[in-house]
Nucleic acid binder design. Structure first.
Lengths: 150, 150
DNA sequence: TATAATCATCTCAAATTTAAGATATTTAAT
DNA sequence: ATTAAATATCTTAAATTTGAGATGATTATA
């Protein structure tokens, strides 16, 4: 296979793996009334604490409109609140409420188990290798985007 | 890292790699007036010839509503037409028109080059490894889904 | 042959995502 | 201190995707 054919193949296989894995993961998130995007936001706040809206978008790769939409939803559900930044009045933080904390504490372990069982059949070594390669691929694609823009 | 942590990490890295790669790929497809889904359908027909609608959905992982929507779009653009199956009257094929053929002939090489340049920075060996692992992961996730359903 | 179950496609409304642009704030340059 | 450029968030309409259910066709079974 030529280099280009390899790239195309990788592109196709990446898309399929993502979609198949995501389909089951989303099913689990839906059980708790959360979309994939909502879950990602809560997971981020759960692990990193309060976070500026803009940076949430950068972290989970959604557009500004998507940020507003998702944060609105989560705020309406009572899982987080907007807190404006004192130092920079352009900035708004998203901060988990106690209800949000409780939710994640209660559902995260099961979620982790679902993801893990999804990936049974791939060994720990293989996962490590895949993580390394996908990180590298993601980094390469990000660079490509940056360069194109310039 | 525990097995479960590895799985979670892989899940996150897979999502990010997919989204970053897709973002640039979609930008290229848009240049030719095609969405990612539309492009996938045309690419499939280009390589495999006429194909039943249902099976298109299975191949590129979109729901039945999405199939109808996308095929409608492509038919309106004149790139394919619906052809009903003689043997089984439930079935409708999607079949590329000469215009569709021409379009793909003209844009596919550039598309392949874009995908390839996106992935510069990952060696051929690494691509091969990634392909193998992602196939395995996709397969594992598909099995998981099948089992869950039973 | 009825009947039930399955299958392929379509319809439609609701949910979500995207893209472009508006507003307010901050930073940098003159 | 102005002005211009950059940044963060929000608004809105359009595009897309999802999910549930309708319809028509086929297959399997009693």
């Amino acid at each position: 296979m030529s280099e280009q054919e390899l790239s195309l193949k990788l592109f196709v296989v990446l898309s399929k793996a993502y979609k198949v894995v995501m389909e089951s993961a989303v099913k689990d998130m839906k059980k708790h009334g959360l979309s994939a995007t909502e879950f990602s936001v809560l997971e981020l706040l759960y692990h990193k604490g309060r976070f500026p809206l803009q940076q949430i978008g950068e972290a989970i790769l959604i557009t500004s409109g998507g940020i507003t939409y998702t944060i609105d939803k989560l705020e309406a559900k009572g899982y987080l609140k907007r807190v404006s930044c004192e130092e920079d009045r352009r900035v708004t933080y998203a901060e988990m409420t106690p209800q949000g904390q409780e939710l994640l504490q209660s559902i995260f372990p099961e979620h982790a188990a679902v993801i893990d069982s999804l990936m049974a059949g791939v060994t720990a070594e293989e996962k490590e290798t895949a993580i390394t390669l996908l990180k590298k691929l993601g980094y390469a694609a990000k660079q490509h985007k940056r360069i194109k823009k310039t």
